[in-house]
Design a protein around this nucleic acid. Structure first.
Length: 270
DNA sequence: GCGACAG
DNA sequence: ATCTTGTCGC
């Protein structure tokens, strides 16, 4: 695993005492620069042998990550990393711990809020149990379906060097993509679990896909390539690990981080 | 001023 | 992300 960050001002590097000497505008300019710099290393095609197999032969471990925030104070959160066996989808590793979040949530800069603690969790797994390192990570949020083509799934992928898939529950309306009547029509046409359609931005690039992830869900999930995996493979893999609307690795990470946060806050008051 | 706004 | 109950349906 490698960690790249050449930036002295970006949100990821906060809090640095002297960052307070620069204004918000400069912070976002620097964060944008950081995204563009990291984007230079992005790979949005398959790089692993298992990705080409019809049944993902060779794939044994899927990772899921999530953060649950304390409602009273969104600088306090529980970060969770889970690893599931494939194709059984059983949890074989779980790590939940409390973290402090420094960056604010700003659409387009989610990575600066969530990625640092997720990199830490991966680093911890690498030191503690490298045999359990996931072969692909499913990330809450978008990959290249992003204002600057570099969402949280790309960011985490570059920093960890792991294949990453972006899975968002809502459509980020960028590059001409809109949740308009046409889009809603396309969604209505999705019949069965696994049905999907690709979404092409005004720039002509295929940015992602809307997937009906379970047969019962009306609302799709939005898949985009993060790093070291193609959109086609990502859609196929995400569908293969959906018991419900949200893919199982993310769902397990979600459940466990909420529980942990809940338990932590209740014991703190007793 | 207006609309959009991943988590 | 989080607040927040029951209820309708398979």
């Amino acid at each position: 695993m490698r960690v790249l960050c050449m930036c002295k001002f970006c949100l990821q590097c906060r809090p640095c005492p002297w960052v307070k000497k620069v204004n918000q505008r400069q912070i976002y300019n620097m964060s944008t620069e950081e995204q563009m710099l990291l984007k230079g290393n992005l790979i949005t095609c398959n790089t692993e042998a298992w990705q080409s197999h019809p049944d993902f032969f060779g794939l044994q471990r899927l990772g899921g990550v999530d953060l649950s925030y304390l409602k009273e104070d969104d600088t306090v959160a529980c970060a969770s990393l889970v690893v599931l066996s494939y194709p059984e989808l059983e949890v074989i590793y779980e790590d939940c711990h409390m973290v402090t979040i420094n960056a604010p949530y700003v659409a387009g800069y989610l990575a600066f809020r969530e990625v640092p603690v997720l990199v830490d969790a991966i680093q911890k797994l690498l030191e503690k149990d490298p045999c359990l390192m996931p072969q692909v990570l499913i990330v809450d949020g978008n990959g290249i379906l992003h204002h600057r083509g570099f969402g949280v799934a790309c960011h985490l992928g570059i920093l960890t060097d792991l294949p990453c898939i972006g899975v968002a529950k809502n459509l980020l309306q960028v590059d001409g993509l809109e949740n308009n009547d046409d889009h809603k029509d396309q969604i209505r046409k999705l019949q069965n679990g696994g049905d999907f359609f690709n979404m092409t931005g005004s720039s002509g690039t295929i940015l992602g896909a809307a997937l009906k992830s379970s047969s019962k869900s009306t609302k799709p999930i939005y898949i985009s390539a993060g790093h070291k995996i193609s959109l086609e493979t990502a859609v196929r893999l995400v569908h293969s690990c959906c018991k419900y609307r949200v893919p199982e690795p993310t769902r397990q990470a979600d459940i466990r981080s909420r529980e942990f946060l809940c338990k932590k806050t209740s014991t703190a008051n007793s």
